[in-house]
Computed example of a mutant assay.
Amino acid sequence: MTDDRDEGLEERRKRLSAELAERRKGEAVDAAKEMQSEESRKGMALGLKISSEFIAAIAVGFMLGFLLDRFVGTTPWGMIAFLLLGFCAGILNVLRAVGMVAKPRSFDGDDQGGKG
């Protein structure tokens, strides 16, 4: 009687081990999908950040040029000049965000490597 009981327990243990292995395999697949989704979200967030910074720089340049023309009276030239400056600033922001251009150094003395 105990042999039948031990065999039944051993059979249940093997079946449960197989189910656990299958479930762990499924969890690994789900974790891989989640990592891929997270990378996709990070890419989308970076793209939106870069595009909004680029558009904002152009809009600020346009508005500064428009206001300069309005108060000084140099009708199209201030807007054209500041629009081009805003475009250049937008390109520089995009290149900095992507990492192709180094960020400007601060002049507060922290980056002198302990000399002072």
Score class of each variant (00 low, 15 high):
residue 110 D to W: 04
residue 70 R to C: 01
residue 104 P to S: 14
residue 111 D to N: 06
residue 15 R to F: 12
residue 24 R to W: 06
residue 14 K to D: 09
residue 50 I to D: 00
residue 103 K to G: 09
residue 55 I to Q: 02
residue 16 L to N: 12
residue 19 E to L: 14
residue 109 G to E: 03
residue 8 G to I: 06
residue 17 S to Y: 05
residue 55 I to S: 00
residue 64 L to R: 02
residue 47 G to M: 03
residue 113 G to P: 01
residue 37 S to W: 03
residue 67 L to N: 11
residue 79 M to R: 07
residue 59 A to I: 00
residue 89 A to T: 08
residue 100 M to R: 07
residue 102 A to V: 09
residue 31 A to F: 04
residue 76 P to F: 03
residue 30 D to F: 10
residue 77 W to A: 11
residue 28 A to I: 12
residue 108 D to I: 08
residue 93 N to M: 10
residue 110 D to V: 04
residue 4 D to Y: 07
residue 99 G to N: 05
residue 57 A to C: 12
residue 37 S to G: 04
residue 8 G to S: 10
residue 92 L to S: 11
residue 95 L to Q: 06
residue 11 E to H: 08
residue 34 E to Y: 03
residue 68 L to C: 01
residue 17 S to V: 06
residue 18 A to M: 06
residue 48 L to A: 11
residue 1 M to D: 14
residue 98 V to N: 02
residue 39 E to R: 09
residue 97 A to E: 14
residue 46 L to T: 04
residue 5 R to K: 11
residue 6 D to M: 08
residue 88 C to G: 07
residue 88 C to I: 03
residue 108 D to R: 04
residue 104 P to H: 10
residue 40 S to D: 13
residue 73 G to M: 01
residue 16 L to I: 14
residue 55 I to P: 02
residue 103 K to W: 15
residue 72 V to I: 13
residue 34 E to I: 12
residue 83 L to W: 05
residue 8 G to W: 05
residue 54 F to G: 03
residue 108 D to W: 10
residue 35 M to S: 15
residue 48 L to W: 09
residue 103 K to E: 14
residue 37 S to R: 09
residue 105 R to G: 10
residue 102 A to N: 09
residue 77 W to Y: 15
residue 102 A to S: 14
residue 105 R to S: 15
residue 62 F to Q: 06
residue 26 G to F: 05
residue 67 L to S: 11
residue 74 T to M: 04
residue 99 G to E: 05
residue 45 A to F: 02
residue 9 L to P: 02
residue 15 R to G: 13
residue 14 K to F: 03
residue 25 K to N: 08
residue 83 L to D: 12
residue 109 G to D: 10
residue 44 M to V: 11
residue 114 G to F: 02
residue 89 A to K: 06
residue 46 L to M: 13
residue 2 T to F: 09
residue 101 V to F: 00
residue 67 L to K: 02
residue 29 V to P: 00
residue 55 I to L: 10
residue 69 D to K: 00
residue 66 F to D: 13
residue 38 E to F: 10
